[in-house]
């Protein structure tokens, strides 16, 4: 009898492997050696059967299940979700980029998932952002900005195929150069954080307005940053310079305010 067979007998533990259906795939081992599912204890007999089945694999090349500290469970689930939902694009990225850059994207994706999760607390998001910044102080937050503003999926990933077409032999090097270049300077967006000054916003916006790009979008979160963007942009005469603007402000379900200030060149007559 396998671990799956044992678990398949439990009424509150259905799992979808092969032709079976999952409603729960997690057991918790308690300090008394018995297991519980969703806080409900299993009988000592079933617990013993599960323990025996796992112990029987001690000398096998692998254990029959994932065994993880509960403090890691939320991270585990998030990385599982990321790897399942993005398998194809992430495999391509893994093939192209050096290990450290690929892992930086993976970690930034993890933070973005937490930001999107309505049940997540500000403290959890801050802790993850702190870890990202500590491990990748130069570019971690820049990658996160690209992901949360959807540029990563909509602009960066599609570039892989375009670069592959243009440079079938050197596409890895060329894509890495492209990726590095957008981390240094992203032509279609300005990301405003607490440490960005009004002067920074004006300088970075005007720098991009000199380029031939279809739009420039200023992104920020929080009332004080929104105020900063509004004051900074009010000092630029967009119409006079041949641009028109769209100042969108939204409130998330959790009450956070965010802004997308879009600048587009006026169409030539």
């Amino acid at each position: 009898m396998t671990l799956l067979d044992i678990l398949g007998k439990l009424p509150n533990f259905n799992i979808n492997i092969g032709n079976k259906t999952i409603t729960n795939n997690t057991l918790h081992l308690n300090s008394d050696g018995n297991f519980s599912v969703d806080g409900k204890p299993l009988s000592p007999e079933i617990s013993e059967e599960i323990t025996k089945e796992i112990s029987a694999q001690q000398k096998s090349p692998s254990y029959p299940c994932q065994v993880i500290h509960k403090d890691l469970k939320k991270d585990y689930d998030a990385y599982e979700e990321i790897s399942s939902n993005n398998k194809c694009s992430f495999r391509t990225l893994k093939d192209i980029l050096p290990d450290n850059k690929f892992k930086m994207i993976l970690m930034a994706k993890r933070v973005s998932l937490e930001i999107e999760d309505p049940s997540s607390s500000g403290k959890e998001i801050s802790q993850l952002m702190f870890k990202l910044d500590r491990r990748y102080p130069k570019d971690g937050k820049k990658v996160l900005n690209l992901i949360t503003a959807k540029y990563f999926d909509n602009l960066v990933l599609p570039m892989i195929d375009m670069i592959k077409e243009d440079y079938p032999l050197k596409y890895r090097k060329k894509f890495e150069e492209f990726f590095d270049s957008i981390l240094k300077f992203f032509p279609v967006a300005v990301f405003v954080s607490d440490i960005t000054s009004q002067e920074d916003i004006i300088r970075e916006t005007k720098k991009r307005m000199r380029l031939s790009v279809p739009f420039i979008r200023i992104h920020t979160i929080g009332e004080s940053n929104i105020r900063k963007v509004d004051i900074a942009t009010s000092g630029i005469d967009f119409e006079e310079l041949g641009f028109y603007v769209d100042n969108n402000k939204h409130t998330t379900a959790k009450g956070s305010r965010f802004q997308e200030f879009t600048i587009r060149p006026a169409k030539e007559s």
Binding site: T26, L29, C65, D71
Partner: peptide, 14 residues
């Protein structure tokens, strides 16, 4: 999906 077993500091030895 894999089967996952979680533990905490109290059940680490087990």
């Amino acid at each position: 999906e894999d089967i996952i077993i979680t533990f905490d500091d109290a059940s680490r030895d087990k």
